[in-house]
Each structure stands twice: as structure tokens, then as C-alpha cells.
Design a protein around this nucleic acid. Sequence first.
DNA 1: GTGTGAATACCGACCAGTCGGTTTGTTTTA
DNA 2: TAAAACAAACCGACTGGTCGGTATTCACAC
Lengths: 213, 213
Amino acid sequence: MKKDLKQEIIDAALQLFQTHGYNGVTISQIVAHVGASKGGFYHHFKAKDELLYEIHDVFITYVLEEAKRTEEMYATPIAKLCALLQSFTAAFHKYQAHITVFYDESKSLLDSDREVIKQKRDAYRKILQHVIIEGQQSGDFRTELPPTIVTMSITGMVNWSYKWYKQDGTMTMAQITAIFIDMILRSIITQQGAQEASEYVIQSANNEAGFIF
Amino acid sequence: MKKDLKQEIIDAALQLFQTHGYNGVTISQIVAHVGASKGGFYHHFKAKDELLYEIHDVFITYVLEEAKRTEEMYATPIAKLCALLQSFTAAFHKYQAHITVFYDESKSLLDSDREVIKQKRDAYRKILQHVIIEGQQSGDFRTELPPTIVTMSITGMVNWSYKWYKQDGTMTMAQITAIFIDMILRSIITQQGAQEASEYVIQSANNEAGFIF
DNA sequence: GTGTGAATACCGACCAGTCGGTTTGTTTTA
DNA sequence: TAAAACAAACCGACTGGTCGGTATTCACAC
């Protein structure tokens, strides 16, 4: 039950950063929150920046590795895309606070730290973008849409949920993800890809095929 | 040419908040940036919080008023939705820095200020959500999708562009908006709505109808 | 008794906000 | 019309408090 102090500090910091921002929280507040002392903090962290960096790195490293595994595991662009979205949103339970800090507070990273994080984030985006391009080449995704914009649109739609998703809401993240996948697939699919996509999509009551061309 | 000091301070603050965050910027830095003094600052603002509030309020008031006007101006849910998206993204040139501050720094608002802003933001979201519901009732938008999730998906996709859109990039915001509208319409439209939607959508080369059911 | 994890006390830098004062502009008055 | 009176805009040194970080000591396991 008793975690080590370092992890307790990280957890408390996540909670506090989420609501007050990195620069709105002091080290004294963090350690007070876990009943520890500043001495304890500086035993585990060289500086406050290091704490922020670790929060960023733990999250993006996890997401990136997960995306690499997922991308290899599936064969078709459509299956890859759906699996990527699911693997990302599945991380919400454990990482929603990380995500909030990641997207709101990265400007407070040291320049050198931010560069390291940026490279991993770019690597992640490239995986997603590559799947989109693959799908366009295979004829499953519409080629009228620039892959960069499609990638950012998908990223935005999914990422934005960190601003509004409540763990105790009426819908689970899995249910919401099903809707994301439905909307995304319908927006980028070609007639050719429609059949495979229909496996992942919500069927409408009065339309067996389930797609609009 | 010479603006008043208050506006110069706001402009400098926008720029600095955008890159360093509200709590990462000092009043001395802001006034140094415009060659003014702290006395000058406190002549125009009661406190630092007031500056942050004004940035929030100017933006959300503009967007809300614009949305009200737009919603009244068009007749059908599809036309309303497209116009709403266009009116929002049109604000990017003037307001991208405001948007960044609005979405990243609202946690630093005073509780009382945040409540005022929240109400205007909710009013804006309700307008969008109402258009979605109207479209479902008229049979133009798919009823399988919960309107709340659709609203947040659209909001996320469009809002997220504040993180990646560069004014000097290869695409204009108008071009990007056309792609947003295309993707969003295709993801929520019914067969019934397809005809009207085809006016707003990017036509594919090898598919006259332009829609996938 | 040596190393590791944690507490306490403290420091120097910095920051939001203040305050007395100066400059600039505008109105009143003789 | 020029000077006097007033007001608004602005300046910058100063302060009280806070924060990140450090030095030192303490506890105790092996």
C-alpha cells in the first residue's frame, strides 16, 4: 500500500499541476500534500524542472511504445488506425492528469528537455500520419484530404477529450472511443474501404450498408 | 499608429503568456517589453488577474456574439454548422494568441472570473450543440451519435488547431476549414442530408455523388 | 560505522503590488 | 490669450512576502 515517496510526490504534483498549473504550484505545497518535506523532495529530484520532465517523459514514452507495438500488430490501415485510437484512449484512466500537464505545461519545460519530448511526440505523430498515408495508397482513405491535416484533425478530436472527459461521467472512454472511430472512419473512408470499415462503425437503424458516399 | 499603453500592454502580455504561461511571466517583463513602467501598468489594471480576465473576456465575448449572429442568419442545420465553423476559424488571425491563453491559462483566473467566463463558454457550446440536435430532428444528422459527444468532437478537432496552425504555413485557415467541414459533415450526415451537404464538401475525383453510406 | 532516505532551518533572489512624485494634456479664468 | 488649476497618464524606487534551492542534521537499516 505504501508507495515510495518519489511516486507519492509525482502523484500529488500531477493532481496539483492539473488544477493550478506548473508555475502555480510550489514545492512546499506538493510535499505538504503528501506529508513530506522539501528535504525529501530534493533527495529524489535535482530540481523542480526534473519533476515536470519526468511527468512528460513517462507519458509520451508509454504512448509512443504502445503505438509502435500496435502499429506492428495489425495488417491493414483501417485496423491499425482503430487500434491506435483505442490504445491511446485506453491510457486515459491512468494518464489523464499526465495528458493535461503534457499539453498545458510543456512550455514550462527547460529548452533542452522540451526538445527531447518534442522528438518523441513527433515520432508518435509520424506513426499515425504514416497509417493515413498507407490507407491513401491502398485506396481505403480518400486522397483529396492532405494527410497532415487529417492527422491533426484526428489528434485534436481525440486529445481534446482531456478537457471534458470525466471519469465518473455517464459514458466510459471505450464507448466514447467507439464514436470517435465511427466519425473518423466515415470522414476519411473511400467506397473501397467501406466494407472493411463497416466492422468498426456504428450501424444505423435504417441503413444496412451504413455508409454515405 | 501609436496605440494607448493599455492595448500595448495587452498585446505584449498575449505574446509572452503564449510562450511562457501566465505564471511564467512577470509584470516587469511585460512592461519592459513595451518600454513602460510598473506604475503605468497599475494605472490601467487593478491587478495582474484583471489582465488575464480581460484577455479571456474579449475573446469569448467576440466568439459568442459572432455565433449568435451566425446562427440566426442561416436557415438549415447544415448551413448553420458550416457557418459556425467558418466564423470561428476566421477569428484565428486576430485571436490565435487569445485562444492559446484561453485554453491553457484559464486555470489561473480568479474563481469568480472563471465562473463568468465559463458561462459564456457554455452558452457558445450550447449554440453548437443545439444545431446538432436540430439536424438530428430534421433527419439530416445521424441520430446514432450522442449530440454531446459530437459537439465535443467537433470542438476538439477545430480548437486543436491553435496548437499546430502557423500563420505563415503552406495552407490558409480558410483552406483548412474547408477540410474540417468536409470531414465533419461526412461523419454525421444521413442519406437525407447528403444532397444539401454536397454543396459544402470536397468532391472526389472518381465519385460524382461524393458520399459514402 | 557507513550509506540512504528524510526532516529542519535557512538564504538569496525575485515578484506582485504600493506610493510619492513628475509629466502631459485639458479646462477654467482673468 | 496666457496663466492658473485641475486631472489623467505614467514613472521607478521600495517593501513585504514568497519561492526554489541548499546545508546540515537526524533516523535507522544492514
